[in-house]
């Protein structure tokens, strides 16, 4: 049982709270991304779990054992760093064997495990090279082998792919996912790349100002954001503000919008979030929401089209469309936007 549990963890630097009352569970074998802008506290949370930072309050447990007061070196974690952090004065084999040595494994047994680990990251035969002789992607594979060879209770990844270029990053994502799935290791991954978070994780936690604003599987977090921040940070979103009237929301220009899920009580103000790719130009009357707007900007990107529109009362709306038939709408055209009530979510501001 190697789940990771964080209970009421808080950390303040000086008078600046970095984390406020974080409680969450990372189930055994799960792959969780901590996603948030810089300064949101995601790295601090990871470093608290690793043991580099001691929380002011709260309890961290790994596999049921309270490790709040256990230093890093007693926690049996595997960690990958943004800079790879390979020891430049040691060969690849010595790097990978470092953690084994700390666990009393030396000689032939260590060599065997090192070889297996290098095999796992597809770098057999690199054992006697120096880190400097390897490319960035290869170095990161070695870092992964080094973290995995000690059979850690949990794998902690601190933006390990952000120093790689796009192609290599995608390759490493696949690799990382394969190895994580094979090992069944509980993995916590800090990133600011939303696409990476969605692709890799079973669970995405969105952090803002030291709090987890939403945690759940990628689909739920994307389709049903709970707050305006979550909707905005993960993907793009249109926000429609209005007053709740008999189970629907009336916007300032009088348009009535229906939403899925529960809305605040009648008479209250509400903000609805709609993903720009969920909207379409409505040709003929069909069920669902409607909004009339004029196109102010057309962004042509080949396969995809983005439009920025403005309603009569000056509200801006974005619309993403696939370039399916080569018909590009013109700037200045007035169109009717349609979308389903199912794709309309009330979010907290």
């Amino acid at each position: 049982m190697t789940n990771v549990n964080v209970n009421s963890v808080a950390k303040t630097y000086g008078t600046t709270p970095v984390l406020t009352d974080i409680s969450t569970d990372f189930p055994e074998g799960s792959f969780t991304s901590l996603l948030g802008p810089s300064g949101s506290g995601k790295t601090t949370l990871l470093r608290i779990i690793a043991g580099f930072i001691r929380p002011d309050e709260g309890i961290v447990s790994i596999g049921g054992r309270d490790v709040t007061h256990v230093p890093v070196w007693g926690r049996n974690i595997g960690m990958m760093f943004q800079s790879y952090a390979l020891f430049p004065h040691m060969t690849i084999a010595q790097n990978v064997a470092f953690g084994l040595g700390r666990r009393g494994i030396h000689g032939a047994e260590a060599r065997k495990q090192v070889d297996a680990a290098l095999e796992m990251v597809h770098l057999p035969g690199f054992a006697d090279r120096m880190p400097k002789q390897l490319s960035g992607g290869q170095q990161q594979r070695v870092a992964l082998a080094r973290a995995m060879v000690i059979k850690p209770s949990v794998l902690l990844l601190d933006e390990p792919l952000s120093a790689l270029d796009r192609r290599l990053r995608q390759e490493m994502q696949v690799e990382l996912l394969r190895i994580q799935r094979e090992s069944g290791l509980t993995t916590i991954f800090v990133t600011h790349d939303q696409e990476e978070a969605l692709t890799l994780s079973d669970k995405v936690a969105i952090l803002d100002k030291g709090r987890i604003v939403q945690i759940g599987d990628p689909e739920t977090v994307y389709e049903k954001p709970l707050t305006r921040f979550a909707a905005e940070f993960l993907g793009d979103s249109n926000f429609l503000k209005g007053k709740v009237e008999s189970g629907a929301v009336r916007l300032a220009d009088g348009t009535v919008v229906h939403a899925a899920g529960t809305l605040p009580a009648d008479g209250a103000q509400a903000t609805l979030a709609v993903r720009p790719e969920k909207m379409f130009v409505a040709k003929d009357p069909s069920p669902g929401n409607r909004l009339t707007a004029r196109i102010t900007t057309v962004i042509y990107a080949g396969q995809a089209l983005s439009y920025i529109l403005e309603t009569a009362d000056g509200m801006q709306v974005k619309l993403f469309a696939q370039n399916r038939d080569g018909n590009v709408l013109k700037q200045g055209e007035t169109v009717v936007l349609g979308w389903s009530a199912d794709h309309t979510v009330a979010v907290a501001d």
Partner: peptide, 24 residues
């Protein structure tokens, strides 16, 4: 973060210093 990497692999700060930082 080299010392941090060593600690994550089980080194105490003193071991990390002598094994990683001092040789460098």
């Amino acid at each position: 973060d080299l010392e941090e990497a060593a600690m994550s692999l089980g080194s105490t700060p003193i071991h990390a210093f002598f094994a990683v930082t001092l040789p460098l």
